[in-house]
């Protein structure tokens, strides 16, 4: 199975530093406009979005240029009326206060921490009128990330940094870093299933075996290439014991049209086999 990838979107360097250190990420050279870091062996990339919805959305788009199947995780701090400082929550609902839109990240894997509604606001708040986590990026992040990946692969994770008793003004760069650093175990436990889901998706998109060799052997039009890809996928399920390239070679088929017609005809005659029933 291809390795799964997770893209982390973090607003500030102080929040990101514990992640960069823990996952041994190095500055990534590609692109301008956003600073990003990566550890390719671990399948992880991180972008510093800056503060706010628009910045988070743009950072997702920046990081999405290269990959098709990564999972996305927004990590950051948030305020809550009375949750203790350091409490970690995964968003089960992301609500944008200014647009009144909501998103519901499907929770399809084991969740290592409690969940909560994350409410994205355009200005920092001190009074927390609802029982939600308040922050400034999740809605922008989610709206755009869900254009690049299924909703199941898009999540937002927040650590409570301030509440009514300890307002945000008391935060320092060190304390923000510590809050994220103290949640690394939970973050790891989120990244793991997200990588698995990303890998599952990537596997479904892997080109079928033999495609390149057959494409090199004859001239296929664009439509024929699509047909061949579909036929080879079916072939690998229906006739796994026969190498399609060998079969085509043995038949000495002269051109792309006859390759497609012959493979189609062959597959048409093969009945699926099911094992003994219960």
């Amino acid at each position: 199975m291809p390795p799964g990838r997770v893209h982390l979107v973090v607003a500030l360097r102080t929040e990101a530093q514990p992640l960069i250190d823990h996952f041994s990420m190095l500055p990534a050279s590609s692109g301008r406009g956003f600073r990003s870091f990566a550890n390719s062996d671990r399948g992880l990339a991180l972008v510093l979005s800056g503060v706010g919805r628009a910045a988070a959305a743009a950072a997702v788009a920046h990081l999405a240029r290269d990959d098709t199947d990564p999972a996305w995780l927004n990590i950051g701090i948030a305020g809550h009326r009375n949750l203790p400082i350091g409490a970690a929550r995964l968003a089960h609902k992301v609500h944008c206060a200014s647009s009144a839109r909501s998103w519901y990240p499907p929770l399809v894997f084991e969740i290592p921490c409690p969940t909560a509604t994350v409410r994205t606001v355009d200005r920092a708040t001190r009074d927390f009128p609802t029982d939600d986590l308040y922050e400034m990026e999740a809605a922008g992040f989610y709206e755009i990330a869900a254009r690049f990946a299924p909703h199941e692969l898009v999540h937002s994770f927040k650590v409570v940094s301030d509440n009514r008793a300890r307002p945000a003004e008391t935060l320092t760069a060190d304390s923000v870093g510590s809050l994220i650093g103290d949640s690394l175990e939970t973050i790891n436990a989120l990244i793991e299933p997200l990588q698995r889901l990303s890998a599952e998706l990537s596997e479904r998109r892997v080109e079928p075996g033999g495609l390149e060799r057959l494409l090199q052997a004859s001239h296929f039009t664009t439509t024929q290439r699509r047909q061949l890809r579909r036929l080879l996928r079916r072939w690998s399920v229906v006739c796994p014991q026969v190498d399609a390239v060998d079969w085509v070679a043995f038949k000495a088929l002269p051109d792309a049209g006859s390759v497609i017609a012959s493979m189609q005809e062959h597959l048409e005659g093969v009945a699926p086999t099911f094992g003994p029933g219960g």
Partner: peptide, 12 residues
């Protein structure tokens, strides 16, 4: 909403 994965959701 579009872009949900029926297959992944079926797991849970």
């Amino acid at each position: 909403p579009a872009a949900q994965s029926f297959r992944l959701q079926k797991e849970n």
